[in-house]
Design a protein around this nucleic acid. Structure first.
Lengths: 241, 241
DNA sequence: TCAAAAGTGTTAATAGTACACCCATGG
DNA sequence: CCATGGGTGTACTATTAACACTTTTGA
């Protein structure tokens, strides 16, 4: 359900927000050949959750998602995509949220708006790991990157949401030019291939990959990158805007 | 926003439903080589709209969509897919809904729940045209098929929703085995090709299409179909379950 | 026997896979 | 001068596209 509270969200009516509707964000980053996502931790409860938020009554849904993303990463202009709406009744379980609020010393009434049923719109986002600055929300104690391959136990159905986001990311990888949003401004072909291999969880052929990427006509070749390694220096590339 | 009202929906609080959340359904059918969708008409207002509905407080989101589909077509086990959530503020315009209710002799108070802002989950559905029995909802005067290529003016952003559904249908056509849900139980290869050509709005090569479909291994060849035409009788096919 | 439509075959073009080769680089 | 990684070349294969040929059907 939800995890991010501003002071006004503690109020029992939640009048500033659309009722019963939330956003859950699976924020992907890529670092040292590993896919990572941002998770929030509620220390006194042991609960971990996806970043999320609510929609202001005078705010577009997609803008609310961008706001959540920006609040958790400090970044704007993030690649963002809706991928599914989670609306099953069995998501409804007020216990974790009550525990989280209690751990913060707030005892909500039983009819508190945060303890009601929520339908959640899932978004996935792709950010430059080196640029993002994870920032906890008002109810969580930490916001940090976690290896997708080695996630801790997540509250509610957040594990399922992550899986669905990853599935969507994989099928979108061909059709959209997604890979580039996870890399720094310039990168080598090996960086790009490693990203693709990590997302798809399979090895790709080096020469074929190189020519396929170049044939797309979306890469600009820059100077060579001298890493200090004892081998031919690879070209750097940049995504043509 | 919304168009389908049960008696209990006329009540000003809408307590039986999740507040501010609706479903809009783009229901595709295929007949005489034309893609069609179901539309509702509100005669006294001149307004036309997509079928839609709300989510009961004790109902799964996807089940609500299935219910709406079933109520408008008389069919169950319909192919159904979420495709987008429409949550922009500029969708919010209570005038059409007020006009619709007024035309039915009901003057809603200004704070009536149906006149508030709605976020709408878009679903597209694929149904067998010959089996569906279009049924209006309690506020509309007709429910009928309309040529996608020649749609009337739709209320609010429903034209945009249809376009987005069609875009999704096209990109899904390869990845999922979608085509078959729009045809009768048995069909000729020409029927199937015509369906694909209509959805994609482009000509396909006959022999290539035939072999590609057969190579998928999902078609069962049945008896020949003698149409009375002065030409070779085509085989009928059925989708292997 | 003819025209129309259906099924299959043939070839060319294209894209994808696998592997090989040579080059640059720093130790 | 060697090991390593990088860029490109080439052969092979699978898929797709384009067109041709043959068969069936009812008039």
């Amino acid at each position: 359900m939800r995890d991010q509270l501003h002071p006004e969200e503690i109020e029992p009516d939640g009048d500033d927000f659309l009722p019963g509707l939330a956003i859950d964000a699976v924020i992907f980053g890529f670092h040292q050949n590993q896919l990572k996502i941002l998770l929030l931790e509620y220390r006194n409860t042991g609960l971990m959750a996806l970043p999320g938020g609510f929609i202001l009554t005078n705010e577009n849904l997609n803008d609310a998602a961008r706001r959540v993303l920006s609040e958790r990463t400090g970044l704007s202009d993030i690649y963002l995509e809706q991928f599914y709406v989670f609306g099953d009744l069995n998501r409804f379980d007020p216990a974790p949220m009550r525990a989280i609020m209690a751990a913060k010393g707030f005892m909500p009434p039983n009819n508190h708006w945060l303890l009601r049923r929520f339908v959640s719109v899932g978004y996935y986002a792709l950010v430059d790991f080196t640029k993002a600055v994870p920032i906890p929300d008002s109810l969580s104690d930490s916001c940090a990157w976690y290896d997708l391959a080695n996630l801790p136990l997540l509250m509610q159905d957040h594990q399922f949401i992550v899986q669905k986001a990853l599935d969507t990311l994989r099928t979108d990888l061909d059709r959209k030019l997604i890979g580039f949003n996870l890399l720094a401004e310039t990168f080598t072909m090996a960086d790009l291939q490693s990203l693709y291999e990590t997302i798809l969880d399979q090895k790709l052929h080096r020469s074929g990959f190189q020519r396929k990427m170049l044939s797309l006509g979306i890469l600009e070749r820059l100077d060579k990158h001298y890493s200090g390694g004892a081998h031919k220096a690879p070209f750097l590339y940049r995504f043509i805007k």
